[in-house]
């Protein structure tokens, strides 16, 4: 069994726990004792909220809408469609016709990259996320 210490993905408390992994599957979440938030405790979401990771409905490949339906595509095809459409819209309507909603559930690094993508690559400050909601 492997054990990895990480931070809970649910509310803003930021509890730490150890994910115990067997054969590539998370089997339990055990609270960290020596931290400054949860002191050996976890709520129900922290302790029992991990099995969605292995859910059969997880998206595994990119999807691209063709003739009205979402069809499986390669990563390069998906990136290609996004790059092309963004470039096209940017050319016709300017960068401010493109916007992004970032994610309060994703990491700092990912949020940094998405705002950089919008500001430095697309050229707009149209980036927001659900802190407002």
């Amino acid at each position: 069994m492997e054990s990895v210490v990480t931070t809970c993905p649910y509310c803003g408390c930021g509890c730490s726990f150890t994910l115990n992994v067997e054969g590539g599957e998370i089997v339990s979440a055990v609270p960290q004792v020596d931290n400054v938030v949860n002191l050996g405790r976890l709520c129900l979401k922290g302790r029992f909220g991990f099995d969605f990771v292995h859910h059969k409905d997880r998206l595994r490949t990119p999807l691209v809408r063709r003739n009205g339906t979402l069809e499986e595509a390669t990563w390069d095809e998906a990136y290609g469609v996004i790059a092309e459409r963004f470039a096209d819209i940017r050319k016709k309507h300017g960068p401010d016709a493109i916007a992004a909603f970032s994610s309060a559930r994703c990491t700092n690094e990912e949020n940094y990259l998405l705002q950089k993508l919008m500001r430095a690559v697309v050229g707009t400050n149209n980036i927001d996320h659900c802190a407002r909601l």
């Binding site: 990491t107 700092n108 949020n111 705002q115």
Partner: peptide
Amino acid sequence: GQNNVQGACDMGALP
């Protein structure tokens, strides 16, 4: 309310 709503604000995911 969310694990990283603080961080998303800190990282400039705001207009």
